[in-house]
């Protein structure tokens, strides 16, 4: 059974590209487009193996999601979090809380290579 990756990204095209990259290395992919939906999704439903979190999303910011939900919830403690942002300084600010920081523009190949290294060993 393949591991679940949750993509939290408001740009449809980027979400699709990220999804293809993750599917390509064998993840099962689920996408949400805003902070509010992401928060609700994280509270119920299966725990993802990996979260790809955009910092600039509507309603609840990626930073708030990371600080107040993901890193506070015991069930989510083992989730690998990759944050994506166009703002290098924002990335800098969350290096402690995130496992990886990717600065936009994010390359399909780069994301694919990174996640293929991270996926659980079969």
């Amino acid at each position: 059974m393949s591991a679940l990756a949750l993509i939290i990204e408001d740009d449809e095209d980027l979400a699709q590209i990220f999804a293809e990259a993750l599917r390509g290395v064998g993840f099962k992919v689920e996408s949400v487009v805003d902070g509010q939906t992401a928060q609700e999704r994280l509270k119920k439903g299966p725990v993802p193996y990996l979260i790809l979190l955009d910092m600039h999303i509507p309603h609840i910011s990626g930073g708030d999601l990371l600080t107040n939900i993901i890193r506070k919830d015991k069930q989510l403690s083992k989730v690998i979090v990759i944050i994506t942002t166009a703002d290098a300084r924002m990335g800098e600010a969350y290096t402690e809380l995130a496992d990886f920081v990717m600065i936009k523009p994010i390359s399909f190949i780069q994301l694919r290579d990174l996640t293929s290294r991270l996926k659980p060993k079969e």
Partner: peptide
């Protein structure tokens, strides 16, 4: 940058 990122991703 956002649409360019998308173009780049699709091209890749």
């Amino acid at each position: 940058r956002t649409p360019l990122n998308a173009i780049l991703g699709y091209a890749e």
